[in-house]
Design a protein around this nucleic acid. Structure first.
Length: 719
DNA sequence: AGCACGCCGACT
DNA sequence: GTCGGCGTGCTC
């Protein structure tokens, strides 16, 4: 038997003083001398709870567990749960027989817990350094991060990297004040426009935890309504967290909050704030000096004290999906927080995602909606221009713009600004029935059919890869397919030339306008970049119908409706003459939903259809991508739930410098495949766990040099 | 990723 | 008998 089984409790005398000195030296200089003993028995250890459980900050899945370290006496006081530490980690320089360890590189970690004994059989290395005594990782945040990592088949360290901002010494040294006294409960204000709006607010104010999917009425009042919900929660003595998709809406809610109860009650957490300011604000929240947080997606983890309410605005916006592993989505994370912390949940949007509809359908959240009369009174008049009219319309042929759009623009410009929504470049058209526009789907798995190569040769399924030799439309029996392409940007330019007396302003990716005045102007914007007009737009032209609906994406319909509504909600109500023209077939479901201003009905129908076809979110999907061998191996090794169904794998397009947004895109030049795995509701956790352990086992087995496999739960842009 | 351990062949 | 090749596995 080895003389060193690590179980004896720090007894060996002889070496202690020198070794302690060496450790002190190491701690002071933050750099280890070459042959430095740092063992269980070597160092003088903390008298109470001498073992620290440490999460090492490496995102690798097979290291996704805690490692035990000895707590040297001199670090005892600072080494509290939640602090950042540095430890030696790695197989560096081991000599177990002599009971000594040396080497290994210094890496960052979080001290998670202090315990009396370790269940590790070897000698423990000592903590090298407590980076700062600030306990940044409290038990709630740790629990949340763990749950998010599990849900997304990711590692805790990866999630913590998203959740805890990098340390900034100066920010940490600043003292934080006491929180101001909570404001009084607000008047319901415009929440009275919604059936149960006032009830929702008073539930918040009295300490309740209501959960709602709120379909906001068009117009600018939503920000103030969110601010009132925050105020009601603060009034109950609890904290609140609001996550918005971008800086502009954050600024709107920020100023609504200032107007309601001034400075000092809330912090703004956005990515563009710079490291010092970001950490300072985050610390103020964690220390309890600030009770409310407004921010973009990284704020979803903000350690708000005694959380009473979480809010997500416009959950259909793609920015709510984090772009770093494991790609958590704000809505899902806030759902987890609401459940774990038993706090209120408010998902608000002018539109409605299928996920939001599912929250209502499942009974998890209650709908918070205005009645039809109220909706009709607040929304603009929506008119459509379909193919039939376009065909009959000589003016449209000549000018590439339907007569109706001309009329509405001309009339609108007499009363104020007119918004023109044009598509962003780069939408990939999808195949649809040339006759009825039904999307072409695979007859086996209902995935989207694609032309195998650009020439339009063989058809195959984008999910399972099966070839389709004899497609015909299941709706109308048509045999011909078409891919829609539009060029509406130029149309807008022509429109500008047609009204030479009117200023044309543009807002898009490169330069986003925040607001425009109420004076007559043509405002050309890509979706999501629409400026708010003072007093509302007199009219809007939505010229991108086909580009929006033609994308090869499950969400094409939902997205189109969301973007149309996002533009139309900036238009005056129909009583004030507000009119919207959408150039799209009036029989299509998203178009009808826009005309009736019924995003919820649209989402509910989409949800029913997804359930029928086995699509997310009614089923949970995971994408596994990597080289063909790697994908096959992971799928073979994973103990997938019994009801799991594997689609594919299919080859992924080889990455060429131009396309960043593909899921799990391979490193340039490599040939990768992707398989989709889908499971029915309820098996999502088992699916994530199975894939995570298969990938972890593979990494541990293969060591270095094994090609990576990427797993992504809820892959976006599938199809 | 990095580094030590260990089981093999070539050398003094 | 001993040095050192790289394949394998672990990191408290």
């Amino acid at each position: 038997m080895s003389s060193d089984n690590g179980q004896r409790s720090g007894g060996a005398q002889g070496a202690v003083p020198e070794q302690l000195a060496l450790i002190r030296e190491a701690v002071r200089k933050n750099k280890a001398p070459k042959a430095k003993p740092r063992t269980w028995r070597g160092a003088a250890l903390a008298k109470e709870l001498p073992v620290a459980r440490v999460l090492v900050d490496k995102g690798v899945l097979h290291l996704d567990r805690y490692f035990d370290y000895a707590v040297p006496e001199e670090l005892d006081a600072a080494a509290q749960p939640g602090v950042r530490v540095r430890v030696r980690f790695g197989a560096g320089g081991r000599n177990v027989r002599e009971g000594r360890r040396e080497g290994g590189s210094l890496i960052d970690g979080f001290l998670v817990e202090r315990v009396a004994e370790s269940d590790y059989a070897g000698p423990l290395a000592a903590l090298a350094q407590v980076v700062s005594p600030e306990p940044v990782l409290g038990p709630e945040l740790l629990g949340l991060a763990r749950a998010v990592a599990d849900r997304y088949a990711g590692s805790l360290a990866d999630v913590l990297q998203l959740a805890v901002p990098p340390r900034h010494g100066r920010a940490e040294a600043r003292k934080t004040g006491d929180p101001p006294p909570p404001p009084a409960a607000p008047d319901p204000g415009s929440w009275r426009r919604y059936g149960r709006g006032a009830d929702f607010l008073s539930a918040l104010a009295s300490g309740g935890a209501p959960r709602a999917v709120w379909t906001a009425l068009p117009g600018p009042q939503w920000a103030e309504e969110i601010a009132r919900a925050v105020q009601a929660t603060l009034a109950s003595g609890r904290g609140a967290l609001v996550v918005l998709p971008a800086g502009r809406p954050v600024a709107r809610v920020d100023s609504a909050l200032r107007e309601l109860f001034g400075e000092g009650q809330h912090a703004v957490l956005t990515a563009d704030a710079g490291p010092e300011r970001r950490y300072r604000e985050w610390l103020a929240v964690r220390r309890g000096a600030v009770r409310a947080v407004v921010g973009t997606r990284a704020a979803m983890f903000a350690p708000v004290r005694d959380l009473g309410l979480v809010v997500v605005w416009d959950d259909g916006d793609a920015s709510h999906s984090d772009d770093r592993a494991p790609f958590p989505h704000v809505r899902e994370v806030l759902e987890l927080r609401s459940t774990r912390d038993k706090c209120a949940f408010l998902l608000g949007s002018w539109s409605c995602t299928v996920e939001a509809a599912q929250l209502v359908e499942s009974g998890w959240a209650a709908p918070l909606v205005a009645d039809r009369e109220q909706v009709r009174a607040t929304a603009p008049l929506v008119r459509t221009v379909g193919d039939a009219e376009l065909a009959r319309d000589e003016a449209a042929r000549a000018a590439r713009l339907p007569s109706l759009a001309w009329q509405v623009a001309r009339e609108g410009l007499r009363h104020g600004p007119v918004l023109v929504q044009v598509p962003r470049r780069g939408y990939v058209p999808r195949l649809a029935c040339a006759r009825c526009r039904e999307p072409a789907r695979c007859r086996w798995c209902a995935g989207p059919l694609q032309a195998r190569d650009a020439g339009g040769g063989a058809l195959c399924c984008g999910w399972c890869g099966r070839e389709e030799g004899a497609w015909h439309c299941p709706e109308c029996g048509g045999f011909r397919l078409r891919a829609q392409v539009v060029g509406a940007r130029r149309t807008a330019e022509e429109l500008g030339r047609a009204f030479p007396a009117v200023p044309v302003r543009t807002s898009g990716r490169e330069q986003v306008l925040d607001t425009v005045s109420g004076a007559p102007a043509l405002v050309v914007s890509t979706p999501g970049a629409e400026p708010v007009a003072e007093g509302g737009y007199a009219a809007a032209l939505l010229l991108d119908g086909w580009a929006m609906l033609g994308r090869p994406d499950l969400r094409a319909g939902e997205d189109a409706l969301r973007r149309w509504i996002g533009a139309a909600a900036l238009v005056r109500d129909q009583g004030a003459g507000g009119t919207v023209v959408v150039v799209a077939e009036p029989t299509l479901r998203p178009v009808q939903a826009l005309v009736r201003w019924d995003p919820v009905g649209h989402a509910v129908r989409e949800l029913a259809e997804r359930a029928e076809l086995g699509f997310p979110p009614v089923s949970r999907m995971a994408a596994v991508s990597g080289t063909a061998e790697a994908v096959a191996e992971v799928l073979a090794d994973a103990e997938l739930p019994r009801d799991a169904e594997v689609l594919g794998p299919v080859p992924l397009p080889v990455t060429d410098a131009g396309r960043p947004r593909t899921v799990g895109a391979p490193p340039p030049g490599e040939r990768w495949e992707r398989a989709l795995v889908r499971v029915p509701p309820g098996s999502g956790a088992a699916l994530a766990a199975a894939l995570k352990s298969a990938v972890a086992a593979r990494m541990a087995r293969g060591g270095s040099g094994v090609e990576a496999v990427r797993v992504r739960i809820d892959p976006p842009d599938i199809g």
